[in-house]
Amino acid sequence: MDSIIAAASVIGAGISVGFAAIGPGIGQGTAAGQAVEGIARQPEVENKIRGTLLLSLAFMEALTIYGLVVALALLFANPFVG
């Protein structure tokens, strides 16, 4: 592998997964905070809130996973090699 392509791919992989974690991190924090607030206000609907929260957390996590997929493609299935 060309060393410049290799170096750029590794840096790109790190940056892609790092930046992809920022937005979902903020989003998940907000969602979890609101869920706690909801449970504190109405403890009787805790189960419903927990289910919805887990589902939406998984959706947000998917955004980071997209970054991870890009990083994995750069590391293990790089289209710019050869």
């Binding site: 996590e61 998917a62 996973i65 997209y66 991870l68 997929v69 994995l72």
Partner: peptide
């Protein structure tokens, strides 16, 4: 695209 990447990425991660 999002369906497949979400499942693949999560399991692999």
């Amino acid at each position: 695209l999002s369906l497949s990447f979400r499942l693949f990425g999560n399991v692999l991660a």
